[in-house]
Design a binder for these strands. Structure first.
Lengths: 175, 175, 175, 175
DNA sequence: TATGAATGAGCCTTCATTCAT
DNA sequence: GATGAATGAAGGCTCATTCAT
């Protein structure tokens, strides 16, 4: 049911996606959706939350402790691009649809911030709070670059996650 | 009148923005908007077009010929950050809202792509078509990084466009 | 100006005819129409009234006293069909458009009744009130037949008024 | 629901009839009408179609084969007058409203023409295509006469369909 | 006097949301 | 528990009508 919602939201956008569409794709009746997931907004937030958690889990798993900073950055980006490639719909909901509507700003900001904080931790040279604070704007930039590159990759399906990672790492090597 | 439309579209998004809202903010009656700007879609396109042209003009003016590549990149990014800082609404319409709605694909592709193409031209080492094509994904990444940095700067008003530019250039210098 | 109104009403119907259209065809500005002819309803009524009077005048002139009943009937019908053929627009307003809208029922009924009374007078054998009263339903039928034949003729422009008259007279000869 | 639509269309005309009116008369909410009958145009067409079929069925049933031409004409007209008397609204929609709106030309041509074609078939002496074509204008005239007589009868409630039929047949007997 | 410019009001249509079954 | 059926509310768009110039 959430899968259906993600698929429809991704394809049509929040407003053009009607509850009828989602119910039909899910193969259940509309009142079921209301019973289990609540209103349309709540449904959309549930989508954001699930996709965000999936993304976090994938990245977290990809960057175990005990690696060099560059290695962790490479693997983290690779995991990110792999997720985007494998979960087109989820990514589109997260990146394109969700950011449009002020109502979901909180939810999406939270999901995004989690990723950025993790990247900032990767980037910080010194491990203190100060180093982390200085790394935050850079982390924002890196995540923004990765997102934009993913967005570009939507129109270039032949790009592999590896290639994307290589491109971005090359751009950032001196950072 | 277009200003009102940009403000409302930026704040509420295309679908949640009602023509009544826009008319009220503009201080005119709805039929006036239809008389001068046409349907809601046409109005949205007019917004995209104007903001896109403004942004292009600002950046173009900032990167005269006869400068080194680094100098041009620096000045271009600075102009970009200045525009985003000064025209928050216009930028949001251009970057966030416009991407969601497939109907406007043509207009948006034209408006947004122009900026990215220009950045790609700045970045391309070799000046042939091939170099340009290879620079495109990088240009997307750079613009994405700049946008994310702008977003972050919204929560840090003490950051000047100069500082933002310096940060990003430092990150990218080796690209 | 009335000519323009009749033309537009005839072509588009009362509701689809906009005051803008009429003003444009008339070559004047909208407020002029309001100044001279009043509201849209009043304008339509003015059209009905003028076309109705024209029709009456034409028929009246065609049936002078001193002819046989059959002769008068023939000439009256001929005049009617000639009017319809020559003033397509006026006739359409009168017959097709005006009868649709309850608001104009009074005006159109009055115009129509005048013609019918005249036909009843033609048909009445005895000249007293009684003969006239008995002729009324027949007059209605005759006028209805003539109208329907005219309506049919709109789609058959090759039909001359003479031919139409001949057809109808043949149908009614024994009446 | 269709009954309500026919009633409102008959009384107010296509354009003045609002979907709100129809919904209220029908005792349902507007979306129901859209769910079952579609748009306003489709609703109007549905009305035309149903009333046309009803009229055709009544007349067809009244003129079985194996009767003389005069007998069939008499019975056909009688059935027609009975229908008009009993289904005033339906007849008005069919005859008056439907002719105004070009958009419905196809549907109307189909519905109204069927009746006239049937009358033409009754009237045609020779049964070939040629005889039929020649009978068409006469059929229009006859139907027009019948309609006008019906109109007149509305103001004379004491007139029975029988009496009306007798009057018209007398007028036409020599046709 | 003549008009460009402006608007109030209304209509068709859709959709998130909820009962009665 | 699941759904078919129903609706309140709102939005895009148009047009008859009127001032200020």
């Amino acid at each position: 049911m959430l899968d259906a919602a993600v698929a429809v939201f991704s394809r049509r956008g929040f407003h053009l996606a009607s509850m009828d569409d989602i119910a039909e794709v899910a193969g259940v009746s509309k009142p079921m959706i209301y019973a289990y997931l609540g209103s349309k907004e709540e449904l959309f937030i549930a989508c954001i939350r699930r996709e965000g958690q999936r993304l976090m889990k994938v990245i977290t798993a990809a960057v175990p402790a005990g690696l060099t900073r560059d290695e962790r950055l490479y693997r983290g980006l690779l995991a990110f691009f792999e997720f985007v490639t494998a979960h087109r719909d989820g990514w589109i909901v997260l990146y394109r649809q969700a950011r449009v509507h002020g109502s979901f700003a909180g939810e999406i900001a939270a999901a995004r911030e989690r990723v950025i904080v993790m990247v900032a931790a990767l980037l910080a040279r010194s491990s203190g709070d100060d180093g982390h604070a200085r790394a935050m704007p850079i982390a924002h930039a890196v995540v923004g670059a990765a997102e934009a590159l993913s967005d570009w990759a939507l129109a270039h399906p032949e790009e592999t996650p590896d290639a994307l990672t290589t491109r971005l790492v090359a751009l950032l090597r001196s950072g």
